[in-house]
Design a protein around this nucleic acid. Structure first.
Length: 151
RNA sequence: AAAUGCAAUCGCUUCAUCGCUCUGUACUCGAUACAGGGAGGAAAGUCCGGGCAGCACAGGGCACCAUACCACGUGAAAAGUGUGGGCAGCAUAGAUGUAAAUUUAUGUUGACAGAUAGUGUUGCAGAGAUUUAGAAUGCCGAAGCAAACCUAGUUUGCUGGCGAUUGUGAGAAGGGGGUGUAAGAGACCACCGGCAGCGAUGGUAACAGCGCUGGCCUUGAUAAACCUUAUGGGCUGUAAGACCAUGUAGACCGGGAGUAUAAGAAGGCGGCAACGUUUUUUUAUCGGAGGGCGGCUCGUCCGGACCCGGAGGGUAGGUCGCAUUAGUUAAAUGAUGGAGCAUCCAAGGCAACUUGGUGGACAGAACCCGGCUUAUAGAUUGCAUUUUUUU
RNA sequence: GAUCUCGUAGCUCAGCUGGUAGAGCAAUACACUUUUAAUGUAUGGGCCCUGGGUUCGAGUCCCAGCGGGAUCA
């Protein structure tokens, strides 16, 4: 499963399919058992679990249909979030690799108005910084459900 | 030149860096490198239709639904749509005319068959709303009866006659004129108008104008009320459907039906044999129970023993369907910067324009195709009308 | 992707074959009561989701849109 990655692949600012969360069963598990970090405008749900990918994390992005009726608005928000994550993912990648773990991430945009790139970029940066402050759980052990959300 | 209406087209361009998706090729097989493709006019709404799939192979009649001026394309097709035409309405302009109006041209709009096949509805108002209606305001005093008087008659009242006038209403039984009459009325006459029928002419046709009738004129509106006529339509929908994998209950309850007939072949058993019996299978006849052809019925097909209903149990993963160079299964087109081109704002200028700033309409394919509808900053082109300016 | 329903007073709903808008609760005022509640009487409140069309006349019929809700193997 986990083939050793070349050093260039890890450091380059890419986001291919193996780095995205695509399986319905795993998404359901993340939604029901994951922990959440909330900030105004954005929420992150994450869970340390074993993933069928050489990358240390898999990610997905979402925007609520209730706040954004039009599909092109939701598409744009997801594209902006994907761009921000792509540029800054090395922050969490190095952190996860140091602790020998894998993590599933779900970014939910909860704002009301259509944002621009700099706003989303800053939000993603703050989120990733706070992720590095959480105590990671090695993938060998089952995750603890009753863990408190970090302030 | 501007504005408005209609029709049509476009709807940011380009460069650099980073990144996404599909296909192909290469090798050290990493999801690495290279090459190529990569969102609209509406992709939207799902309002119509087709491809395609299932319901047995998609049959007849009724019911139901849809459509409705004509010709030619497109289409399986009523349709829809394109081009051209006919008719009707509206607007503008011109001509004739005192005027009402008529007519011509241009533009534009029209769910544009039938109300003389039948049924229904037509509130309120009004005398009366469609079986030759009705008498409120009215007109008449010819005819009949009665009374009075100045008694061959006149007046008044009642019976009566009338449908012109006023008024109501969306709509009141063709128009104004004459004859006629007690008063009146298409009751009659000429003209005009409408409808129907017939005839010939022009046109492929819709239709047009013309002529004729001892014809009808008592016959409003509504079919987007039922309906009539003509034409078309079987129903359900890609969550259709096919295959693989996993799993389960051929169990339970209620109801119904009962294992056909004949011939041939093969095997088993009994018997010395003829033969008998039983199982499997083929053909022919019959086709009960029940079911299908999603409304009913006819007709037809399946059905050789199980069928119908109830209540439950189980699985809910994958591949195909699925794309002629967009293409996926949490679903790809983005970000940043530079230059240009629009919009908007501010300042300057008589103006062309200059400087600075802002910053790009509606909107994102999910099986495909055609039509319709809706959203749309702005730009361009054509036609028509109006206004102003110049020649 | 497909199929189907519903928009009427502040709320929940009637309104059948077209004729001009109704019920219950709520609100306001008055009466009763020391006061409130309950009760009784009266009153107001609607561009019938929006825009066109048919018709003398549309909540109702037809067309298009907007918004809510439900279902599918």
């Amino acid at each position: 499963m986990s083939r050793p990655l070349s050093e260039t692949k890890k450091t380059r600012e890419t986001l291919c399919r193996a780095e995205r969360l695509t399986l319905k069963r795993r998404i359901d598990e993340l939604m029901s058992q994951g922990q959440a970090i909330k900030q105004p405008g954005m929420t992150v749900i994450f869970k340390f679990m074993e993933l069928p990918t050489p990358f240390p994390a898999q990610v997905m992005f979402s925007a609520s249909k209730r706040n954004y009726k039009r599909s092109h608005d939701r598409n744009r928000i997801k594209r902006l979030m994907r761009e921000g994550y792509r540029k800054q993912k090395h922050i969490v990648y190095s952190f996860f690799e140091k602790h020998q773990t894998q993590c599933a991430l779900l970014f939910i945009f909860t704002g009301r108005q259509l944002p621009n790139q700099t706003y989303v970029h800053g939000k993603i940066f703050g989120m990733l910084k706070r992720l590095t402050e959480t105590p990671p759980i090695p993938i060998a052990k089952p995750s603890d459900h009753d863990e408190k959300i970090q302030p």
